[in-house]
């Protein structure tokens, strides 16, 4: 069988989701941590809906996945330099000056 890729960033297959579920990782957060989907460069933009749909199907309903995993900024990979000046000088504390 050829691999059916759910998460291209971390090479997670549809089969991986099934096996993880069988091993007891039966909620989105656990499934995500165990298989690694959504933890790569795109942070879930091309896999979260597939994984949620999988879980909704095996658990019997959309309400079984009503909450998405916690959203973790930034929305897209962004250089550290972009944030280094994001606080007013007084807030940042002189000791962290780059």
């Amino acid at each position: 069988m050829p691999k059916t890729i759910v998460c291209r960033c971390e090479d997670v297959t549809e089969e991986d989701l099934k096996r993880a579920f069988e091993r007891g990782f039966r909620d989105l957060e656990s499934l995500r941590r165990f298989t690694g989907f959504g933890t790569g460069f795109c942070q879930g933009k091309s896999c979260l809906c597939h994984a949620a749909r999988f879980l909704a199907a095996v658990k019997g309903g959309d309400d079984m996945v009503s909450d998405p995993p916690r959203t973790r900024p930034p929305l897209r990979p962004t250089p550290f330099a972009a944030f280094a000046g994001a606080l007013p000088e007084a807030d940042a504390g002189a000791e962290e000056k780059p």
Binding site: K3, I5, S46, H50
Partner: peptide, 11 residues
């Protein structure tokens, strides 16, 4: 976000 359907070697 645009998605691909799930089929073998969809990547």
């Amino acid at each position: 976000y645009d998605q691909l359907p799930l089929f073998g070697n969809n990547d």
